[in-house]
Write a protein that binds this DNA or RNA. Structure first.
Lengths: 192, 192
DNA sequence: TTCTATCTACCTAGTGATAGATAGAATTAT
DNA sequence: ATAATTCTATCTATCACTAGGTAGATAGAA
C-alpha cells in the first residue's frame, strides 16, 4: 500500500477495454497490451493469468462502474424523463463522440467465441439494464411491468442499432434519426 | 464449364459466411475453411488470394443476393405494409431461428479491423437498404423523403439492436418485444 | 500444350502461455 | 535494530501452436 503509483493492474484494464471496443476479443494480444502499458507480456499474465480472465475483469469493472453511475430508478425526487434522457445522451457520447462501439455491443457480437463466463456476465448486464429501464418506464407512463419491459427493450434495441448504423455508414447523423422518436417522447418536463 | 460439380468457389464462400456470422473476421482461418471444404489451405488461396479478397467476395455475394430478393419498392401492385413485414420476418428468421448475427451486423462491429474495401461495401449496403426502406415508408405514410429516411433508420436500428439483445441475453423473446411497435404499426391491411 | 485445381512443403510473424531469475519492498524472527 | 524470509512485480527466454501467405510439383481437362 501507500503512495499508490498509478496502478498497473487498472492500466491494463483501461488499455484492454480500449482494444476491445475498437476491434473485439480477437483483435488484440497480450503483447499489444504490454507494449501500450510499457511492460512485457509475461507481466500482463502475472496480473491476469489468461485472456479469458482479463476480458472477464474488463467486463466486471465496466458493469460495476456503469451501474454505479445510474441513478436509483425508484427515487421519487428524480424526474424519469430526465433519467431516460441522460441515459440516451450518455450512450450517444460514447458511440458518436468517441466513435467506437460500446463494450457490450462489441462483446455481444463476439459472444460465439468468448469464454463462457463472459457470456454470462453479458447476459446479466442486459437483464439488469433492462430492469432499470423498465422501472423508469413504469413510473413515466404508469404502465404495468410487462409493458415497461417492452418499452425498455425497444429503447435499448434502438440505441444498440443506432450504434451499428453510425459505425456502418460512417454517418453520425443516423444516431439522432434512429433515436428521434425517443427524444420526442421523453422530452424533460422543463422543456414542455 | 460443363457438368458443374458443386462449385468449390461458392462452397468456400458459404463456409466463410458461416464462420463470419458466428465469430467475425478474426475468428476463422484459411485452414478452418479448407478443413470444412475438404481441401488444403493453399487451395483456398488459389480461389481467394487474400483474406481481404475472401471477405470482400462474401460481402459482395451477400449484398447481391440480398437486394435481388427485395421487391421493387415503387411497384404499385405491392402493398408496402406487406413489404415491410416481409422484411422484418426475414430478418427475424435469420437471427432468431438460426441464432446468429446477420453478416452485416457482425462485419460492422468488426469494422475497425476490416480491410477498407469491405468497409466501403458495408456503407454502400446500408445506404442502399435505408433508401429501399425510405421509399416504402414514403408510400405507406405519405410523407416526404426526409421523414421516410427517419422511419427507415428507426426500423433498421430496432432490427439490429434486437439482434444484439437476443444474442446478448440468450432470450429470443426480446426480438418481438423490441419490434412490437413496428409489428403493430405495419399490420398488413388484410388483417385490419 | 496450356489451363485449372489441387497438392506438399515451407516461411515468417505472431499467438497465449510458462519457467526461472531477479531486484526491491514488506514482513517476521531473533 | 537487524538479519532472515517472503512477497510483488517485473524481466528474459522459450514453448508449442497457429496465422496468412508462397513456391513448385502434379494430374487431368480443354
Amino acid at each position: 500500500m501507500g503512495v499508490e503509483k498509478i496502478d498497473t493492474k487498472s492500466k491494463i484494464l483501461d488499455i484492454a477495454e480500449g482494444f476491445i471496443v475498437q476491434g473485439g476479443y480477437n483483435a488484440f494480444s497480450f503483447r499489444d497490451i504490454a507494449e501500450a502499458v510499457g511492460i512485457k507480456s509475461a507481466s500482463v499474465h502475472y496480473h491476469y493469468s489468461t485472456k479469458a480472465d482479463l476480458v472477464s475483469a474488463v467486463m466486471a469493472r465496466y458493469t460495476e462502474s456503469f451501474f454505479r453511475q445510474l441513478p436509483d430508478p425508484t427515487d421519487e425526487s428524480l424526474d424519469p424523463k430526465i433519467m431516460i434522457n441522460g441515459f440516451i445522451d450518455g450512450f450517444k457520447a460514447k458511440i458518436v463522440d468517441q466513435r467506437d462501439m460500446s463494450l457490450c455491443t462489441m462483446l455481444t457480437s463476439n459472444k460465439g467465441i468468448l469464454p463462457e463466463s463472459v457470456g454470462h456476465e453479458l447476459a446479466a448486464f442486459y437483464q439488469f439494464l433492462l430492469d432499470w429501464l423498465s422501472r423508469i418506464f413504469v413510473r413515466l407512463e404508469k404502465i404495468d411491468e410487462d409493458s415497461g419491459l417492452i418499452q425498455a427493450s425497444q429503447l435499448l434495441a434502438c440505441l444498440h442499432g443506432a450504434s451499428i448504423l453510425v459505425q456502418g455508414t460512417d454517418k453520425p447523423d443516423f444516431f439522432d434519426k434512429a433515436l428521434s422518436r425517443w427524444k420526442a417522447h421523453c422530452l424533460p418536463s422543463s422543456l414542455l
